[in-house]
Design a protein around this nucleic acid. Structure first.
Lengths: 133, 133
DNA sequence: GTACCTGCAAAGCTTTTGCAACTGG
DNA sequence: CCAGTTGCAAAAGCTTTGCAGGTAC
């Protein structure tokens, strides 16, 4: 069973959360570190990393890493979608044709010049599905 | 203008490409290194990295790094989409409601148990659009 | 009081780079 | 030939971890 942890709302944790909620961009850890250091000049980068981890476990924030931390390489140069197994991190091609309509739909809603999109499905693969073991 | 380069099809490059085309998974650089080393025991990991870079420039393969190399953190815990600027790497929320139908459409087509998806739009932001400078 | 947290420094990993030797076209 | 490439080793990032001291509750 998962280890129980009683998290404390330390000053550092509170300020990291406040600063992250304050911006609408999606900063990297080092950017958050810079933001927070204006209010806590002696905070360490390790504390920022540890708190971002805890806060995303608590579902207060989201950690974004769609394709995982490591780069992956794909022998198929054409654009296509993928499906990832959340258990074993296996990444397959998704048997799904391109949704060309998506870009058209978002164009009137954004100030960006939209030139494409990426779509990834998340799931559990055959081998990781308990009922089929 | 972009520097012109005359790429050579060296044995190492050819074998890396062959091995990558051979698999339907999307291996990481270190996995490709292991695959290639069975045929070229003395190849170096640096060569693998350099060739993956060249091959993706040549559009022979794709480098997958949807959210970029670095992790990013999002103060909004609810699921939502993003839009990335390919020039400055800025990442904003996408003003686009969730496409709940996608998962339903892929379920009959895959052996994975689908539990979600991630969608990212790619574009050029306001500040990077030349015509509005 | 004590489990959790912090800052610092060191370690860990993946990826990139400098360099001298080598090679494909 | 010689620009492009390779292997090796070292460097460069980003992220995690060990540890001793500090703190929230």
């Amino acid at each position: 069973m998962p280890k129980k942890q009683n998290h404390r709302m330390t000053n550092q944790r509170k300020i990291i959360l406040e600063e992250l909620k304050k911006v609408k961009t999606h900063p990297r850890a080092d950017e958050i570190y810079k933001m927070v250091r204006k209010r806590l000049p002696h905070i360490s980068l390790a504390t920022v990393y540890r708190n971002l981890e805890v806060l995303s476990e608590l579902k207060e924030i989201q950690k974004l890493e769609s394709f995982g931390t490591l780069k992956r390489f794909d022998g198929t140069p054409e654009n296509h979608y993928h499906i990832r197994c959340i258990k074993c991190d296996r990444l397959d091609d998704a048997p799904f044709s391109l949704e060309t309509g998506l870009e058209k739909k978002i164009r009137p809603l954004t100030s960006f010049t939209v030139i494409g999109h990426r779509l990834e499905f998340i799931g559990i693969c055959n081998e990781c599905t308990p009922s089929r073991k």
